[in-house]
């Protein structure tokens, strides 16, 4: 191969490379896919700020410019009805209270709250395995999920989140809902395992009603979410790690027809410390403000 031919090949290669780079930099729509909202300098400065406050980053920061909208949800009637139908088939007694309805069989009690929350208590419990505390996380989740699937209590759009081994002996497994590959942290399933038995299941499941793509706007960056969190919670007396920072939806539980939940950056610290940063406003998410005269 002569030098002239090599130069020609390199020219074509660099033309291609430059077109690719220019395309991602300047093309308005496609560029968004890889557009950076966080520069490397910003990542370094956020890391420094975290370290100054005794926090240490153990996860990567999403650098892309992301956009999102509100998601309208309502309590998932279908799942609730299915669960309760099963209770009725088992001959459950039904007691209607002010804010909840209780379905009781000999070994199971389901309490359905007006917000849509369902709490099922098993007495004396469903046997899973001897000494569940000694099991690996994966073994335990498999056992639990097999039971839940068999009982029709395991929705499909669900992701295992974390597991907590409480000091007093029981273990709780936490799952969250997913909608179109985006976490919906408000929709959740929590399972309690006490020694060798599954003793309780709590389900709060949401039905996505609609999205508003025309209201989609760019959210704050993951780095800004971390900065806002630091500004709010301040420095930690003991070292803490930031284990995850992920974009999803989050909102409260309401006794309402339907409601919107907002995009949030969920920041997970160690010891299951969770913070939800509103991805539009940058504020730490708290309960919504229902207008009422407080004074």
């Amino acid at each position: 191969m002569n030098l002239g031919r090599s130069k020609l090949i390199l020219i074509f290669a660099f033309v291609g490379l430059n077109l690719f780079l220019g395309y991602h930099l300047f093309w308005p729509d496609f560029g968004r896919l890889t557009r950076v909202a966080v520069t490397m300098d910003e990542i370094h400065s956020v890391e420094l700020m975290l370290n100054d406050n005794n926090y240490y980053l153990e996860t990567s920061i999403d650098r892309s410019a992301r956009s999102s909208d509100f998601l309208t949800v309502s309590p998932a009637q279908g799942l609730q009805e299915k669960i309760l139908q099963d209770f009725i088939k088992k001959g459950a007694q039904v007691v209607v209270a002010e804010n909840a309805t209780v379905y009781r069989t000999e070994e199971e009690t389901a309490v359905v709250y007006s917000t849509g929350l369902i709490r099922i208590i098993y007495e004396p419990g469903v046997f899973l395995a001897e000494n569940t505390r000694a099991l690996e996380e994966q073994q335990l989740t498999e056992l639990v999920e097999t039971y839940l699937v068999g009982e029709g209590l395991m929705p499909q759009e669900i992701v295992f989140d974390y597991l907590v081994k409480r000091d007093v002996g029981f273990i709780t497994l936490h799952y969250y809902q997913v909608y179109e590959e985006t976490p919906v942290y408000s929709g959740k399933l929590q399972v309690t395992v006490d020694s060798d038995k599954l003793t309780a299941v709590e389900i709060y499941w949401l039905e996505p009603v609609e999205r508003f793509p025309n209201r989609e706007i760019e959210v704050i960056s993951a780095a800004d979410a971390l900065k806002n969190l630091m500004a709010e919670i301040g420095s930690s007396p003991e070292p803490k790690t930031v284990k995850e920072i992920k974009l999803g939806y989050f909102g409260g539980e309401y006794d309402a027809e339907k409601w919107e939940i907002q995009p949030v950056w969920r920041i997970v610290l160690d010891n299951y410390e969770y913070y939800y940063i509103n991805a539009f406003t940058g504020n730490i998410e708290q309960d919504i403000v229902i207008p009422e005269q407080a004074l």
Partner: peptide
């Protein structure tokens, strides 16, 4: 547009 809506019963 940044406020979310809750539709009461």
């Amino acid at each position: 547009n940044l406020a979310r809506v809750i539709e009461e019963k």
